[in-house]
Design a protein around this nucleic acid. Sequence first.
DNA 1: GGGCGCATGTAATGAGTTACATGATTGA
DNA 2: TCAATCATGTAACTCATTACATGCGCCC
Lengths: 177, 177
Amino acid sequence: MENELLILGLLRKQEMHGYQITEFIDRNLSICTDLKKSAAYFLLEKMTREGWIIFEETRAGKRPLKRVYRLTEKGEGEFQRLLRENLAGYPPSAFGGDTGVAFLDSLDANEAQGLLRQRLAAIQQLADDLRDNPHHHGPVAWVVEHQQRHLAAEAEWVQTLIDRLSNSPEVHSEPII
Amino acid sequence: MENELLILGLLRKQEMHGYQITEFIDRNLSICTDLKKSAAYFLLEKMTREGWIIFEETRAGKRPLKRVYRLTEKGEGEFQRLLRENLAGYPPSAFGGDTGVAFLDSLDANEAQGLLRQRLAAIQQLADDLRDNPHHHGPVAWVVEHQQRHLAAEAEWVQTLIDRLSNSPEVHSEPII
DNA sequence: GGGCGCATGTAATGAGTTACATGATTGA
DNA sequence: TCAATCATGTAACTCATTACATGCGCCC
């Protein structure tokens, strides 16, 4: 439901057409989501069917037809509901990268360290990208800050793992059952 | 691919049947994944088709037929490949909860604080659940530690947000374009 | 004239979820 | 005897992804 919330939230502040929404997300909100174009169009259609939004077709000059969307009253209600639901809850986050860590004992310590150093570099890269990003204002800046903190913590964590592999090269693997 | 990696990694240490795998994951690895039964069966079928694993049908007493799976050589190769790929990379993690935060300026500070306090409680709950969990050994313990650190950082972050809402009750919402 | 940006979509595919179906054994 | 556990699966559905299709305008 986060994607619905996102689109409703954007349309609520300003009516927009599909392309504009996806461009805006790509440019300014790629930190908190990676909504693809076709997914966005799909959701716009779905939410139109459900009566949360409506569109008006407009044509500027001879440019292609645009569908400019805005919230209905029902959509405003859904936004309010989804926003509260989102803020009050905490979707338990699983990290895909943990699966590999769970089997670290399958590799010798040296190779494991090399791989984790690559992971560390990938994290640093993301952190650097974030710093170069256009700066934001209001609550979106908080989201950026959240990501920054998270990436810093992840880097620290991976470094800890690397260090531990140095100190105890033998991670003995016991039978799991 | 994390789910494939997970199943390969488990089967590699010990041959198992489907039910056993899902039970094991439910009981011991619910921290790092939430693989559902039908998804697991689906993957076992797929991986069998691809020749990564094979099964032998056995029947203990008059209990229902069991399909006991183990890795093929190809499966071992895939495991090695997927493990290195997983460890070397860092899948950029988006937090669903950030979508709500991005629209915090739609609510008055008091209500927002109340909702975030509920989120905080949900995080604490997860942290408590984790502490009561069966204790793990080897690299899985590291994964648990990772989750613990993450949850602690998240709690701290949400508390920061709550504090900021106290100090500056007016988060002025500017036009986003 | 050619390539990029604007603007909308469809089709195929994949991955995962929920709910349902089946049937035997074990334990209270 | 009744419920829970063991054990496997199917079906329908949702959601998202990739790749493709279309066509005009604008700028160099």
